[in-house]
Write a protein that binds this DNA or RNA. Sequence first.
DNA 1: TTGAAAGCGCTAACAA
DNA 2: TTGTTAGCGCTTTCAA
Lengths: 336, 336
Amino acid sequence: MKPPKKVSITDVAKRANVSITTVSRVINKVPTVDKDIVAKVEEAVAALKFRPNPTAQRLARGGKGAAVGFVIPGFPGVFHSFYAVELMRGIGHGCETLHLDLVFHITDGKNPLRSTYAGGLIFADIIENRSQVEDAIEDGTPSLVINHLVKDLEVSYIAVDNVKGGATAAEYLINLGHKRIATVTGNMQTQAGMDRYEGFQKTLMKNGIDFDPEYFFKGDYSRRSARDAAMYFFALDNPPTAIFAASDEMALEIISVAHESGIKVPEDISVIGFDDNPAGLFGAVALTTIKQPLFEMGEEAVKIINSIMQGKQTSLVRKVLEPDLIIRESCAPPSS
Amino acid sequence: MKPPKKVSITDVAKRANVSITTVSRVINKVPTVDKDIVAKVEEAVAALKFRPNPTAQRLARGGKGAAVGFVIPGFPGVFHSFYAVELMRGIGHGCETLHLDLVFHITDGKNPLRSTYAGGLIFADIIENRSQVEDAIEDGTPSLVINHLVKDLEVSYIAVDNVKGGATAAEYLINLGHKRIATVTGNMQTQAGMDRYEGFQKTLMKNGIDFDPEYFFKGDYSRRSARDAAMYFFALDNPPTAIFAASDEMALEIISVAHESGIKVPEDISVIGFDDNPAGLFGAVALTTIKQPLFEMGEEAVKIINSIMQGKQTSLVRKVLEPDLIIRESCAPPSS
DNA sequence: TTGAAAGCGCTAACAA
DNA sequence: TTGTTAGCGCTTTCAA
């Protein structure tokens, strides 16, 4: 463990017998530098193992941090979901493509979230951390919220139409002929969870199926909650013939419980999920689901925040993507 | 969307009629400032909505970034694993506790990984990105590798004894009376994957069970590969009576396939995993596994890197944690 | 094509 | 207790 070195541009300049300005030019690939000098400087850079100090560069360039901050509510489960992971992948990929640094903020919503490096902030949904969004807007930090339609704040967002997603699921099940349709919801502290449920329930009612508390189970996106829901539903005197789960992971868990209980999917019960998690593809029965382009949403979020940060985008961008129904094998007309 | 402001310390100083030094003192909470002045300055700070420019602060403080960089190989699957997510949680938590920023680097190992902000780097294993570790050491950036024993480099590491973990699994199965023991490995590009397999295989041989290629399936930690493995094993003329999966997710998937195929766990087949993923707890049969303290490892990694960054720790830290056998319900003596 | 010099916004001796 | 004055390491006019 050697002590961190401190080779500065000055050292390079000295060794190459040029001014620091010239060294700066070389490392920034300014074309108007003499070949020989470039060579000399590069030699010096290599010999001294010089690495420009990014902090100084940024200061000199007059910039705030160029990093993108990704704010994740440190809520139990958030991290364990396909949702967060896909978003991360998309955002990570987007940042790499645009050569942006990515700073993570796992927050409980309390701390003011000093945006030390971030020149822009992406919020992965808002759960109890609305004030952080307000703060960001307040001090002019470009911000964008994912999957949460914040209409009363001056902030950009990109989201999937969760209401429509829930409605689509309900419609599909109804069209298949189901009457006894149950649902296990997502975390109701998230707007997505609420919206999916809302779209689902309203569509049911619109089609003459009244709300039946027996067929409602409040989940939280976790497999655990889905298992509880499945056990509960299956034990009902008059069990549902179809279940809408607000996430694929939950749907998958329900199918597992069904298998364990000797209940056949989709013959005995139809199950539809939400996400289009590839895990749903290769199980015993391929999962029918509502597709949500998470990875793309993350990537897109980075592009948007970047163009705002660069001043190319000066108005709010509010994008709502359409979810798609992906029909596979886990749903069928009711047999009973 | 207001254009980002540019209130500097000078503006505050002017408004408060003091020198910028005094302002600096106030924002840094230096105690030797007069009450009244503090009040005046704070008033100005609030009125102007002044936020110190962290880039300038860092430059002036002569420091590199104080952030911790977390380098994740952008390998397919890495992100989808319980492994990465737990590590992230641990690291995220550690950073929050120590008030350190967390910068993510999702890398393919090619790019030189400009450690723009990071004052220290934590590598989540090494897959094709050894050169990045070498670079970091080269330029004196404190570094630590997780779950990869890099003995030929001047770098700290913290890891679980994967060889021992594999051995423990094998021993347990052997003691239960199994002879036909199969394994589906983890990603063999990771040292952890190799080590678990090595410990497992050697223990088998030490106990008089020769290597049987039929009982070996090369996986990659993914559910998908585990499913393939399970189908393959179950279709064998002489199927194994026990399977060691290099991750819980894989073990869980094997159990699912078994259920779907009418094979009972643990009566017909024993399955042991690796990780201690809570998902293993609430399935139809609770998963027996080898516990690996991922979250804690991540937290500890942050503590270590921090003390190196602060110069408190000047020698290499190399910590190897012991994995634990967690006996639950998925393993039993062979019936046949 | 090159260099001198003035900052970028802030901290930290050193004085006062 | 407060202010003056150098920098931190680099970029960027502006001249030469």
